[in-house]
Amino acid sequence: MKSLSVALALVLARTTQAGLRFGCSSLTIQRLDPVVEPGNLPSAHLHHIVGGNAFNATMTGDVGARGTCTTCQMAEDFSNYWTAVMYFKHPTNGSYHRVPVINNAALAQGTTGGITIYYTQYDLSRDNIKQQPITAFKPGFRMTVGSPTHTGKPHAGLSYNCLTTLINRGPELSDFPTKPCPAGIFVTHHFPACWDGKNLDSPDHQSHMYNTVTTTGFINAGPCPATHPVRMPQLVYETVWDTTKFNNLFTTGTNPFVWSFEGTGSGTHADYMFGWKGDALQKAMDKSECFYDGCGSIKQQSMSVANQCTVKKFVNEDIDGWVSHLPGMEVSM
């Protein structure tokens, strides 16, 4: 499978379509999950969250209208993006240490930790058939991808890379690497892009969407089916976890990493809650000849401003240093 860096090189060599690639600094790391566990303080496991400051345990309606700041470079994006947190499990004593997040390569100067966000039209390349227009997400829209209970090979578009450098990603993997990675572990969450046109959410937070991609995420996306006829922006998260500080404790051939729900790589998952202001995202998706910046249609802010955006600590617990159990896992241990 081709890494994204190769895919980008290929697509940028030809005419590109509208797309956004930008960074969002870390907003908070807490046990909150307003999509899967609304109202729960705390949620079952720890999450790494970026985006707008409307984030809390219960979020309904137009999130973008309530946000007053965002950790994202795109100043009109008050959406929230989050994933489970990665932990290193000590091979000798079984204790855990949270793995820190570092910024991806080529992001805006000053981005702190965070996630790289993509909104593209057709997985960075066009089909040979006439494509549907792109319809931006609506206020109140939310979805998830992947599942903490999933076993076996992860769903299409959910992958890992063992980084040689922040630029050289190497091959895509379906699970955590089983050797030390010189520059950390790169994790991709690629969401489905076909919507049923009716529901802003569904009981499992996934059935209102359909994924036309069955292999790696960054390839041509087939037409949307009749059950989910509306083509929406292709949303992707990229997170770089700085596993390098644990390399001297690593035994090659084994995997010492777990997600914060005590799960292995197959359970990787991510949550999304739309919160763009007005029609800013739609304007970017309506452009056709540029990538990364939305053809100048979206206001950007310096990351020094973005990094000032915070939310209060809703769950008071220690999440740093070596711990005997994962946050929220006391009963099951």
Rank of each mutant, 00 (worst) to 15 (best):
A9S: 07
L163S: 03
A136K: 11
P233K: 12
F88Y: 13
F55P: 02
T71V: 05
R66N: 07
P233C: 11
A65E: 13
G64P: 06
P42T: 01
T227K: 14
L158P: 03
V305W: 12
V331S: 10
G253F: 12
V6I: 08
A84K: 14
R126N: 12
G265E: 11
G296W: 10
E172Q: 11
P171L: 06
S95C: 03
I102F: 04
D201C: 02
R169W: 15
P148Y: 11
T60G: 00
V99F: 11
R231M: 08
F261L: 08
L166F: 13
Y160C: 02
P91T: 02
K198Q: 08
E238P: 00
S159I: 02
E262Y: 14
G51M: 11
P38M: 07
F261P: 01
D293H: 09
A284P: 08
I185T: 07
I49S: 03
M232G: 00
E330H: 04
K299S: 10
H190D: 15
A183E: 09
K245C: 00
D127L: 04
M333T: 06
N128Y: 14
A284G: 11
H45M: 00
K313M: 09
A105W: 13
M329K: 11
V305E: 15
F191N: 06
E37L: 02
P148F: 12
G114S: 09
Q132S: 15
M74K: 05
T251E: 08
P229N: 08
A84E: 09
I129G: 13
E238C: 01
W322M: 04
G267C: 08
F191G: 05
T243I: 07
N255P: 00
I49Y: 12
P229A: 06
S174W: 15
G61H: 12
Y237S: 03
L235N: 04
I319V: 13
D318S: 13
A44Q: 10
F274P: 00
G184S: 10
F291A: 03
T112Y: 14
T252F: 05
R31E: 02
I102W: 06
K130P: 00
K287Q: 15
I29R: 15
L10C: 01
S159Y: 14
T215I: 02
G267E: 05
V236G: 00
E317A: 07
Q131Y: 11
L20P: 02
Q282M: 09
H45A: 02
P133R: 13
M285Q: 12
T28K: 12
E238G: 01
W322A: 05
A284E: 09
H325L: 03
C290F: 09
P177M: 11
L46D: 04
R31Q: 03
M285H: 07
Q206N: 05
C162F: 10
T149Q: 14
S159D: 13
Q308Y: 03
F55I: 01
